[in-house]
Nucleic acid binder design. Sequence first.
DNA 1: AGGAAGATCCGCT
DNA 2: GCGGATCTTCCTG
Length: 207
Amino acid sequence: MSSVLSPLPQSFYARPVLTVARDVIGKVLVHVTPGGVLAARIVEAEAYRGPEDRAAHSWGGRRTERTEVMFGPPGFAYVFFVYGMHWHLNLVTTREGAPHAVLLRAGEPISGGAQMARRRKLAADDVRLSNGPGKLCQAFGIDRRHYGVDLTCSSLFLSDAPTPRGRLGRSPRIGVDYAGAWAEKPWRFFERDNRWVSRPRASPKPT
DNA sequence: AGGAAGATCCGCT
DNA sequence: GCGGATCTTCCTG
């Protein structure tokens, strides 16, 4: 049904970043490719709220060629490259001038599993297909070409959910230990008891 | 001009 | 659990 695979409007993104990060859990990420339609329920996401949030790339008002899209209107894709080999996908939120974004960290495949498996070199039922931000992008074929695309009118978009989400979990964000007190903020949201979540619980802290 | 670090993943122990 | 892979981006000197 094409009705369940239509882009959410800009108004979905034009809200506080923590609200969007929470509400995106259970929504469906869709990528229409020549090889077929890829779709996955988002089960894990994180909010990044520059310029005050030290964990955000837009921290301190850093406005560069890379972060530029975050300073624009909501509903666009912020795609960046890390660790020399991984791409990450963010949703720009809130309003123009507020460099806020939601990182999509994991998804549960519901369509196009064969293509995802081919890209990931795994079996179609392997949880490692998309249980992490880099894995999700590789499975979906997302890279620099998707930087700045309008998520309300592109082949890449977020669709409303055909099924309700499960219980919501919260924890500190992953991999931002360098951010001091900001690293402790519980700005990671995930669907509890879903096996596609990258880490079921918050990572233990050293004493 | 140079270098350090990174919103990670994978394979091995 | 640990370290290597791999390269873009940004800050410093």
